[in-house]
Simulated assay, not measured.
Amino acid sequence: MSELLVKPSGNTGKVIDVTPQSAGWRYVGFALHKLTAGQSVSAATGDREVCLVFVSGTGRVTAGGETLGKMGERKSPFDGKPAAVYVPGHSDWSVTAETEVELAVCSAPALSHRAVKVIGPDAMSQEVRGKGTNVRHVTNILPETDGVADSLLVVEVITPGGHTSSYPPHKHDRDALPEESYLEETYYHRLNPHQGFAFQRVYTDDRSLDETLLIEDGVTTLVPRGYHPCAAIHGYDLYYLNVMAGPHRRWKFHNQPEHEWLLGG
């Protein structure tokens, strides 16, 4: 199996655990917890900031000593917007599931002292990107314009069956602002219906990295560098939760020149 593909380790508990150490990079961390009703998970953030995203299910949340109450309404990541909570560095959080919960824990370096912030569905902007079979639907959870986080960028995307996404191919692997920013990235994938599949290619201009990955329900893709387009097959919608971070909280990407013509007209 490719080192860029992380499959879930089971059906309950922490089933995905990507750290900077395991990924061989510096910034992004991603974990996924699957909880049954009544189960709890908690952690201290240490020197990292965290964004908790309710991929599905309902739970009660505390963070930074605050009781934040019940969060999460959707039954699946294909049913509307999520609920999320930003937790700064040198703090703590806990979630107790009231239903089955799929909880994403997105993390990156904390650089300053910030406050806990609830990011409810109403606070999240949505947009449609692309045309024709390149249309996809984006929910901005922690965009660079919000001023909430030090390092984290978090977004959800739904790509309809038969459509492409993260396309035309683009990359963000050079610390060369204003032309391009360096951002590590993870993709947590889900499919509807769950038995479907999709494809993702991760590759560089010189093809020193060139892998085509079979995407099944519940896997996570690591994008350390290079272009990283996705394709959802007919009949199966593709969801992914993106986590990005780097030395600057800027998403400035570079399109692959050979395919940039697709943006015209």
Results as ranks from 00 to 15, higher is better:
105 V>W: 07
97 A>E: 06
40 S>E: 14
249 R>S: 03
239 Y>I: 05
164 T>P: 00
8 P>Q: 13
174 R>C: 01
262 L>P: 00
130 G>K: 14
103 L>V: 08
197 F>W: 13
225 R>M: 03
78 F>M: 10
68 L>E: 12
132 G>Y: 08
36 T>D: 12
127 E>Y: 08
217 D>K: 14
200 Q>K: 14
116 V>A: 14
243 V>F: 00
151 S>E: 11
36 T>E: 13
191 L>V: 13
211 E>S: 11
210 D>M: 08
163 H>P: 00
116 V>P: 04
73 E>T: 08
231 A>V: 09
182 Y>C: 05
251 W>F: 15
24 G>E: 13
251 W>H: 14
221 T>Y: 03
232 A>C: 09
38 G>D: 04
43 A>P: 01
183 L>N: 10
153 L>I: 15
121 P>F: 09
129 R>M: 07
239 Y>W: 11
115 A>N: 12
174 R>G: 00
252 K>P: 00
184 E>C: 06
167 Y>W: 08
3 E>D: 11
151 S>T: 14
104 A>T: 02
169 P>R: 09
97 A>I: 11
115 A>V: 02
99 T>C: 10
197 F>A: 10
180 E>S: 01
203 Y>M: 03
225 R>T: 01
80 G>I: 03
217 D>S: 05
194 H>G: 09
95 V>R: 11
72 G>P: 04
11 N>A: 14
178 P>D: 07
261 W>F: 13
188 Y>K: 02
90 H>S: 13
254 H>E: 14
178 P>E: 09
247 P>A: 12
8 P>V: 08
193 P>V: 15
17 D>H: 12
218 G>V: 09
63 A>S: 13
139 T>M: 08
69 G>E: 02
149 A>W: 05
96 T>S: 13
120 G>A: 11
68 L>F: 09
247 P>K: 13
54 F>Q: 10
127 E>S: 15
53 V>I: 04
3 E>R: 14
107 S>R: 10
76 S>I: 04
208 S>T: 15
241 L>S: 06
57 G>M: 09
123 A>C: 01
80 G>W: 04
222 L>D: 02
192 N>G: 01
159 T>K: 12
195 Q>C: 08
153 L>K: 05
251 W>T: 06
235 G>D: 05
57 G>Y: 08
247 P>R: 12
179 E>I: 06
65 G>S: 08
41 V>P: 00
91 S>N: 11
103 L>N: 09
243 V>T: 14
126 Q>I: 07
127 E>I: 07
67 T>A: 15
216 E>Y: 07
221 T>A: 13
228 H>F: 12
91 S>C: 07
189 H>D: 06
109 P>K: 13
112 S>T: 15
72 G>Q: 08
219 V>D: 03
18 V>K: 07
125 S>F: 00
258 E>Y: 06
241 L>A: 06
213 L>K: 01
239 Y>P: 03
100 E>A: 15
39 Q>L: 00
146 D>Y: 11
60 R>L: 10
3 E>C: 03
214 L>E: 03
16 I>R: 13
35 L>K: 14
31 A>M: 11
53 V>C: 02
78 F>G: 04
54 F>Y: 09
172 H>N: 11
126 Q>R: 12
5 L>S: 12
53 V>W: 01
63 A>Q: 11
20 P>N: 10
153 L>S: 07
141 I>M: 04
188 Y>S: 04
129 R>W: 07
137 H>P: 00
243 V>G: 02
